[in-house]
């Protein structure tokens, strides 16, 4: 069985580092896959929450509404924090 993780689809090491840091701070599990498509990531996430990269930006996608991203931002740490808090059901804080 897959762990109840949010899935990050990214190949940029700095994006991966910053998103991992956000998830570590929030104590929420994160899995990383090698694609960059947020909708695919959300589909792989048991929590239905995925992060992907498109045109240099970070997309947060919900599997239940994967037709368009839920949020898009440039700050990988912020987008990671939002995704982690969404999974943990905490207030999301600053938004892009």
């Amino acid at each position: 069985m897959s762990p109840p993780a949010v899935v990050l689809a990214a190949d940029d090491p700095e994006v991966v580092r910053l998103v991992r840091a956000a998830f570590e701070e929030e104590a929420v599990p994160l899995a990383v896959v090698a694609t960059t498509d947020g909708a695919t990531a959300a589909g792989h996430s048991p929590l239905g929450i995925g992060l992907g990269q498109r045109a240099g930006r970070i997309e947060l996608v919900l599997a239940a509404a994967s037709g368009s991203p839920y949020l898009v931002g440039d700050d990988a740490r912020m987008m990671g924090r939002i995704a982690a808090r969404l999974a943990a059901r905490r207030p999301l804080g600053d938004l892009p």
């Binding site: 509404a65 839920y70 939002i82 808090r85 905490r90 207030p91 999301l92 938004l95």
Partner: peptide, 11 residues
């Protein structure tokens, strides 16, 4: 049916 705005989540 449609997701709530992000600013409303967990509030």
């Amino acid at each position: 049916e449609q997701p709530a705005p992000a600013r409303a989540v967990a509030h």
